[in-house]
Simulated assay, not measured.
Amino acid sequence: MCVAIVLGGGRGNRFGGKVPKQYSDFHGEPLIRKVVKAFTTHPDIDAVLPVIHLEDKEVAFKALENLDALEPVIGGEERQHSVKNALESLTATPPHNVLIHDAARPFISSSLISRVIHSLETEKAVVPGLPVTDTIKSHNGKRIISTLKRDRLLHAQTPQGFRYKNILSAHRNVQGDAYTDDAAVAEASGLKVAFVNGEKKNIKITNPEDLDSNKNKSDIIEYRVGNGFDVHRFGDGNHVVLCGIKIPHNYSLIGHSDADAAMHALTDAILGAIGKGDIGYYFPPSAQKWKNVSSKVFLKYAADLVKKSRGKVTHVDITIVCQQPKIRPHREAMVNNIANILQINASRVNIKATTTETLGFTGRNEGLMAQATATIAMRPNDDDLTD
């Protein structure tokens, strides 16, 4: 079991503002909420324990509303005391590992969390860090005393990971002393601390300028394009279903679901744009539960995946290839239905039809085919971008 402790009990005096920095707005949500979500959505984190200041209870509960986190613990006068309070609160059901992270580091990535957890398989304490690239000097207040060798120096970051029983014991043993991070507490108690590579973007917000500069990075929008293609043959029946609209015809399309080739192609196009495989992966034709089901279910599922991926469908284009039936009389209804399912304006949906001039299987009226293109606007995940 691994518990992530998120430290949000500081006052952030250098930051200024009407509220402590961990409750400052960043793209519509408080920083602490962004941090807690990063851990609650990580597959190797079993629980998240926020630590807050006594005076912040009201704003904290509002900021953390509806998140799958433990009830916040009240912190102490110093960071060290807050960590100890959190660790002590877990003694009833002690986890094997804990990660301790600053709420003022909102740009934590899933891959960094994974690196720290993986290191704990062989280590009792681990810290993410970055090499020091600047020349570091020590001084006496007036003059430089010496130059430190930077090849053995690291900028320490969080989350710092520990075996729970070891870091709890360390905090109990060093009461009265002041340490600036939990690795220092571990070192003071005799624990050997390993390190893994940190990340440049994992900065600690100290001043408002730190937040403003990173807002620009989070404003990055990229556009992804996916393509889909589907074919169904004609069989006995009196109608076909295309884009969810029932169209009278001398034949019906044969398929496991409702054989809506246009909607299947569009579903694949959307899945392709966000890198989520294809329709058969989620809705295999061998599964009886999808027998005769409306393809609206498939398209809506793909649209929901877009939202979960922090994206938005901006435009879709569908081409239906057949000799019959005629598509134009039903085009408006088809466009409106697709727009409704995707929750976008109908002007962002284009549907057209063509023939193969009596060539091929569609020309012989043996079936029809559809192809689709979907354009998705996405804000990249932190792990998708490299420095």
Rank of each mutant, 00 (worst) to 15 (best):
C2W: 01
I5C: 02
V6N: 03
V6M: 12
G9E: 13
N13G: 06
R14C: 01
G17R: 02
K18M: 12
V19Q: 09
K21N: 08
K21M: 08
Q22N: 15
F26L: 00
I32R: 00
I32C: 04
R33N: 11
V35W: 06
K37W: 06
K37G: 03
A38T: 02
T41G: 08
I45F: 01
D46V: 11
A47H: 02
V48K: 01
V51M: 02
V59K: 11
A60K: 09
A63R: 02
N66H: 11
L70Y: 00
I74D: 01
G76L: 02
H81G: 06
S82V: 01
S82P: 07
S82T: 04
V83D: 01
V83C: 03
K84A: 11
N85E: 14
N85R: 14
S89M: 05
A92W: 01
T93D: 11
P95T: 12
L99G: 04
I100D: 01
S109P: 15
S110T: 05
S114L: 09
L120S: 03
L120K: 06
T122I: 12
T122M: 08
E123G: 06
K124W: 00
A125W: 12
L130G: 01
I145Y: 07
I145F: 07
S146A: 12
K149W: 15
R152P: 12
L154E: 02
Q157G: 01
F162G: 06
F162M: 07
F162S: 05
N166M: 13
N166P: 00
A170I: 03
H171M: 11
N173M: 13
N173I: 13
G176P: 00
D177K: 10
A178S: 09
D181W: 01
D182H: 07
V185R: 03
G190R: 09
G190E: 14
K192P: 14
N197I: 10
K200D: 13
N202W: 08
I205E: 02
P208D: 00
E209R: 05
E209N: 10
N214G: 12
N214Q: 11
D219C: 13
D219L: 10
V225F: 08
V225E: 14
N227H: 14
F234S: 01
F234R: 00
F234W: 04
G235K: 04
N238G: 04
H239V: 10
V240F: 00
L242S: 04
G244H: 03
I247P: 05
H249L: 07
Y251F: 09
G255S: 03
S257C: 05
A259Y: 13
D260I: 05
T267V: 06
T267D: 11
I270Q: 03
G277I: 09
Y282Q: 14
Y282P: 12
P285S: 15
K289L: 09
S294W: 03
V297Q: 05
F298V: 11
Y301T: 11
A302D: 02
A303L: 02
D304G: 09
L305Y: 14
S309L: 15
H315W: 05
V316T: 13
I318G: 08
T319Q: 04
I320C: 00
P329M: 03
A333T: 15
V335I: 10
N337C: 15
N337S: 14
Q343C: 07
N345P: 06
S347L: 13
V349Y: 03
N350V: 08
K352P: 04
T355G: 07
T362S: 15
T373R: 10
T375H: 04
R379N: 09
R379A: 12
N381G: 11
N381L: 10
T386K: 08
D387N: 15
